[in-house]
Design a protein around this nucleic acid. Structure first.
Lengths: 334, 334
DNA sequence: GTATGAGCATACTACGTATGACTACCCCGG
DNA sequence: CCGGGGTAGTCATACGTAGTATGCTCATAC
């Protein structure tokens, strides 16, 4: 219909090499040894190269019932953290001959389920789901790996966010802070629950009442975080733990608005160690996560499932506190 | 082979509705009017809904020779600019019933051509190429839209980067700067050539010799830009134009290292208006580009081509200078 | 001279869909 | 009673590949 480029098929290759299409298929899919003579095989390969033959993936997918593509669903591609996840997944996938189809759900339930439906139509063999709420919609036999969340019977990969957050709060406590605010992500996810859990645990252990600490929720956006950060600063914390570097960036703006100095008047800790964290003034103390590793490990797990192994492994990756310039000894007494 | 989920086919739907597979296809692809009675059509739709039927895209792709997927090649997904491009493209594509397959070439020629080859195998109907060097490899009939670059006979979409850069240099000149450095991207692309062109033009017009101004090239990475920024600062410019916000971020670090104050000692201008630009201290003056628009307009052009129109339109999008806190009157004299 | 088997290659089919060609039926006018 | 024309739907096929069942050829063994 459209003047699409005519690409050579295995039949063209067969004609060129003077053999049948079957033989071509045999040779090119590596099943030749013992079935086709080496001389013929070489001739076929030669022709294929010459004609620039590439198997038609649609036909392959139809025939094999598998497309060698996986979907990666992330909530917000504007957040560079996910670019790194994608990069890791893409690298691992490419090595295994897979393509990654990225779906940016933009934190939009409607859009999420819509694109999800589109994907279920068959173009992908498996799913890498980042904190997505859909897993119940999938049959228990689907090839799925959960990222940064967990569900019964599903393999998953996540960071030890609780340990990371605990390290951050420990750090603040050691610096002598006793009024520690929490600028929290208004996003229901296991990750953030972990951080909250760590907060309660560490503060309680230090004799600080977690309930009495100022705590404000905010959408994960610089501007939202700025606005909500202003409210938090009004409660006069001497330190603030932010659920995310983006949120921390918003808090920096709020501090500037209020004339509050970091770290002199208030210490700030972020989470994720995004590229811009060290560029901020002062450089942001944050919990570093290897996002690329998350992506690649997740794909590896998915691949295991796709090749038939019914793994349910739950991988936990380390999270490490990076102390930079945004945290300092508490001077509330002075 | 693998226990893949068994999905219902159009034959199942046909059986359920008591009609032939052809009829199902007719109804579901909207070709029913005049061929199938409304009563039957409704029955078919009912069955399809009940069985949860979704057409097999692999089979469709094979039959139609089109996959309703397009590829978007970008050089570095870690750069949030491209996330926004993707978002725009994805939105426009979804509206037209297309899927966007993202390929992050990571500025790696080898990887670029490799993934490119993988794509040419047939899974996509068209390409959105961002400053990619491959266009010669594609036949003149391929469905391609170039982003931020141009080539004879190809449709393209780009920003008026020259106007944007000119506005930035005008701004610096008006502030009284006469020694204006250029921290330039070490990346051969039309975009950056445009900026360089604007620099020469504006400076010459202002009676400043462009050749005499300090100019340093740097890879587009915060750390690289920091190192090269140090070298540039050693030449004592009173203002610096950075080819990119990421580069500007690196220059901020360099300035901090050297104890050079922004904008008091040196004014800084960036390019792109990334999210973090306004969070920097001081907020970065930069040239704003609507990346999402770039993505959506590009897809629209591509769609025109894919539906047979042989358009070669060249779209130019505006670029606008955003003056914030990183630029100030030159105080070199004091 | 024929049975045996290895080695090599081919014929054919299925995967699920879209669609042009075709048929069966009914109604109506002549 | 027949032909024309519209309506409602079916048949058959092709898309390109993978792989199973099959066939052919030749050499060796009895």
């Amino acid at each position: 219909m459209f003047p699409t480029i005519e690409r050579p098929t295995s039949i063209d290759v067969a004609r060129c090499a003077g053999v049948s299409q079957s033989t071509v298929s045999l040779v090119l899919s590596g099943k030749a040894p013992g079935r086709v003579s080496e001389a013929t095989a070489e001739r076929v390969r030669e022709c294929a190269r010459e004609l620039g033959y590439r198997p038609n993936v649609a036909a392959q997918a139809l025939r094999l019932g598998a497309s060698r593509a996986v979907a990666l669903l992330v909530p917000d591609m504007t957040n560079p953290f996910f670019s790194r996840v994608l990069r890791g997944a893409q690298r691992a996938a490419a090595e295994a001959g897979y393509i990654v189809i990225l779906v940016d759900t933009q934190n939009d339930r409607h859009w999420e389920s819509q694109s999800f439906e589109a994907l279920r139509a068959g173009p992908v063999d498996g799913y890498l789901l980042f904190e997505v709420t859909a897993p119940e919609a999938l049959g228990p036999d689907e090839n799925v790996v959960l990222m940064e969340t967990e569900a019964p019977g599903r393999p998953s990969v996540r960071f030890d966010g609780e340990a990371g957050a605990a390290a951050a709060f420990d750090h603040l406590v050691e610096l002598g802070h006793a009024r520690i605010g929490h600028l929290a992500a208004a996003f229901r996810a296991l990750t953030f629950e972990d951080r909250e859990k760590a907060r309660r645990r560490v503060l309680s252990a230090a004799g600080i009442d977690p309930e009495a600490q100022p705590r404000v929720m905010t959408p994960i956006t610089i501007e939202d975080a700025r606005v909500n950060g202003l409210r938090l600063l009004d409660e006069r914390p001497t330190a603030v733990f932010c659920d995310d570097d983006v949120i921390a960036a918003g808090l920096y703006l709020a501090a500037r608005d209020r004339g509050v100095r970091i770290p002199d008047d208030v210490s700030v800790v972020g989470f994720d160690d995004m590229d811009f964290a060290r560029v901020l003034s002062p450089p942001l103390t944050t919990v570093a996560l290897d996002a690329e590793l998350l992506g690649s490990r997740s794909f590896e797990l998915l691949e295991q499932r796709m090749s038939g192994r019914r793994t349910r492994k739950r991988v936990v990756l380390p999270a490490e506190l990076l102390v930079r310039g945004s945290t300092a000894k508490c001077r509330a007494g002075t």
